[in-house]
């Protein structure tokens, strides 16, 4: 029991093998989109643009990784967008009130964690329907954020906030480092911890998990807790980057995060998926969002292309995946 397991070599090899990469349904789409955009747009691969994209990517990826936990459980969390908004409001108010950036970040993460824990507890122990319950939280949390601020956003934050949010470390934006850290933690958590395994198994077959003596309620609780906490962390990223928080800050993130998760190839029905897939899904969303904008398309024409990519890209990814696994 004393010896902490070292990363098994076999696992590491599998982590970078071609076969493992092909498991990611969105990878070919991502590559094609990225290549096409780099050819057609001057400066798409410039350092400035990549850093810019990284800052858009970070909060989306973080929120979507949180949602991945819930999807793995075979559940849904509709509240992440408004949890993000509420957390951003409370965090920004704290920053402005105390002039401490870190206290603000802690408040945001704590707000997310608290609502996530409440969601998890209610769903796991009182067996509320996750869909309707988190829909209620979606509406309520946003309404509370509105009430607190009267609809205004909360800005004029301490200078340190922006310096961090727009700053870089070792050549990469700080926010990207946070996203990388979250990804690594989520990956290890799902892969190497008992709770992580329990989350996947509960999602794969809840009854079997009960029969196997797995801690089903703890797993479901943890999934929603992670989802809420990461929504809070995503709020921090946005607040640090923008220098403001607000009651409608997270309005767009729910659909974008769902898009990132399902495009990445995590199943809606539970038990199948993972953090890396979601990262590729989020990359697709951000690359297209930014790339189509740079192409100068009208926003509705961007939507047309985005819609086609979601449908045809997923179809292509699914086709390649089936061909590789030999499923008819």
């Amino acid at each position: 029991m004393a010896d902490l397991p070292t990363a098994p070599p076999r696992v590491m090899r599998r982590g970078v093998s071609l076969a493992a990469l092909l498991k990611l349904p969105m990878l070919p789409v991502l590559l094609v989109a990225f290549l096409a955009l780099s050819v057609s747009i001057d400066g798409f691969v410039s350092a400035a643009n990549l850093a810019n994209m990284a800052r858009l990517f970070a909060p989306l990826a973080i929120a979507a990784i949180g949602l991945t936990f819930v999807f793995l459980l075979g559940e849904i969390d509709l509240s992440i967008g408004s949890v993000l908004s509420l957390a951003s409001v409370l965090g920004a108010l704290t920053m402005r009130g105390t002039a401490s950036v870190w206290l603000g970040v802690m408040v945001m993460v704590a707000t997310g964690a608290l609502i996530g824990a409440l969601n998890g507890a209610v769903i796991a122990w009182f067996r509320f329907s996750a869909f309707v319950y988190t829909l209620g939280v979606l509406v309520t949390a946003r309404a509370i954020a509105m009430l607190i601020t009267g609809g205004h956003s909360v800005g004029r934050l301490p200078f340190g906030a922006l310096r961090f949010g727009r700053g870089t470390f070792a050549g990469l934006p700080w926010l990207l480092w946070i996203a990388i850290a979250v990804y690594a933690a989520a990956h290890l958590f799902l892969r190497q911890t008992v709770i992580g395994r329990e989350i996947a198994l509960v999602g794969a077959n809840r009854r079997a998990a009960v029969f196997a003596g797995l801690r089903v309620r703890r797993a479901r609780f943890t999934g929603f807790l992670v989802s809420g906490t990461l929504a809070g962390l995503a709020a921090s990223c946005i607040v640090l980057r923008l220098g403001s928080g607000g009651p409608i800050l997270g309005d767009n993130i729910l659909l974008m995060a769902i898009a990132a998760v399902v495009l990445g190839g995590t199943s809606v029905f539970g038990g199948e998926g993972g953090a890396f897939r979601t990262v590729t899904g989020a990359l697709v969303v951000v690359t297209l969002d930014k790339g189509l904008n740079l192409l100068g398309l009208a926003f509705y024409d961007q939507a047309i292309v985005m819609g086609l990519v979601i449908v045809l890209g997923s179809a292509l990814g699914g086709y390649l995946y089936r061909r590789r696994t030999g499923r008819a």
């Binding site: 029991m1 004393a2 010896d3 902490l4 397991p5 892969r191 190497q192 911890t193 008992v194 709770i195 395994r197 329990e198 996947a200 198994l201 794969a204 077959n205 009854r207 079997a208 998990a209 029969f211 196997a212 003596g213 797995l214 199943s267 038990g271 199948e272």
Partner: peptide, 30 residues
């Protein structure tokens, strides 16, 4: 209905009741 995790690896199916045994440390690392 009650035993198999059909869309998970055979390895995970075999070890589903062994998790406390293959876990170690306060974090419950596998």
């Amino acid at each position: 209905r009650d035993q198999a995790f059909l869309n998970r690896a055979v390895r995970e199916n075999l070890s589903a009741a062994m998790l406390p045994v293959v876990a170690s440390g306060p974090l419950g690392l596998l």
